[in-house]
Write a protein that binds this DNA or RNA. Structure first.
Lengths: 209, 209
DNA sequence: AACCTTATTGATCATACGATCAGCAAATGG
DNA sequence: CCATTTGCTGATCGTATGATCAATAAGGTT
């Protein structure tokens, strides 16, 4: 008990710039996810255990730092493999949709992503609109085409139906990370049931196959 | 052209306190819905065409004003009639659910509500959790009971299924007012289709009856 | 061990923001 | 038309925040 903070944060200073930058960005992601994009730089620096001025050594302005945060969070959130997965006709539509949403939910049902996506959406960021546009074009539209071709029921799915399926699933993550109300630890069962209801309604696949 | 703002806003000062207060609260609702709960009082005053100091004549602090905003937005958002509507066995479950969600969506798919609910949710407001808890207990739980009693299919709906139905519907409003991406002008068709898919999956009602 | 590079700091500036208050002027009553 | 009340304003205070910069010291090199 000779110093205030003995070993926990051994104030290791003078990191290699690349590593320090990474540390700042990751800390900023966690920080802004907690308090919102208007969180101040002093509090962020405090969390990181560095001085506020150091941040401006790595980023010319706060908005530059936020750009890096966006990039870090948005990068590779939509895998390039999914369009091919979703149109791989060697699997049933049900298998493909379930595989996709299990993977996708694991990827987006995360505190940082959910909250920063929502914060930036509320701020009117063009990034969100581009993301959702991309999601619609690259994931939902091809999937819709597959479903429309395969549908055997009296009714055929529309794009808006797919957004409804999608929204119902995403809403689990919203409840968990935005509203922070009780919700299932493992969403996969709820997802499976939602997908099966959807496919059954369009006679697109038997849950028991 | 003798004065800067001739007639448009005839700077009618000295309103009756009650009316001024109402004007401030309604302006604050619109303002904070736009810019977020951290919007500053000077900008709000500018929108209202009054001085910043006037706000503090009606509210002791900014957080007091926000309390009034919450109250104004949350008040009577969940009608007391709905529980009875949803359990009124003179109508089919389909009629009841559709009537509810048509009314409910009209009530909540509004810019101010959607955004302030989301802003306050992100801020961790207890109000949101209470609202959702209330929604679950007063709306969804009774509805679930009705459905479970009436279900004739092999599977019976669970609470999480109802949250999924609910989330899929609410997501329309999120796309519209939070992300501000293209979505149907009139959500009632999408709602009807979502409800019918749900009921069909549990053999709870024929869409054509 | 002395030296040099540069990552990091502490002090500081300009502005933004919430909040206060004495004084002004608009409405009301006489 | 004057007096009184009080809704409203303008100026101001203290602090918070983004941003700057000279000074410092950590870590590698010789």
């Amino acid at each position: 008990m000779n110093s205030a903070e003995p070993t926990a944060a051994p104030d290791r200073r003078r990191l290699p710039p690349q590593e320090r930058r990474r540390q700042i960005v990751e800390g900023a992601v966690a920080f802004f996810a907690d308090v919102g994009l208007e969180g101040n730089t002093r509090d962020l620096a405090g969390r990181l255990g560095v001085t506020q001025s150091l941040l401006f050594n790595y980023f010319a302005s706060k908005s530059d730092l936020l750009e890096a945060v966006y990039e870090h969070v948005y990068l590779n959130r939509l895998s390039d493999d999914w369009p091919t997965l979703l149109t791989d006709e060697r699997q049933t539509i049900r298998e493909r949709v379930l595989t996709f949403y299990d993977a996708y939910s694991q990827l987006i049902f995360q505190y940082e992503w959910m909250r920063i996506f929502m914060f930036s959406g509320l701020a009117g960021a063009a990034l969100n609109r581009r993301y959702l546009d991309h999601l619609g074009k690259v994931i939902l539209a091809p999937l819709l085409k597959q479903m429309q071709a395969a549908a055997t029921g009296p009714d055929v799915p529309q794009m808006e139906d797919l957004w409804n399926l999608h929204g119902g699933i995403v809403y689990i993550g919203i409840r968990q990370h935005i509203y922070q109300v009780p919700c299932p630890d493992d969403p996969s069962e709820a997802i499976t049931r939602a997908v099966d209801r959807f496919l059954t309604a369009f006679a697109l696949g038997d849950p028991n196959e």
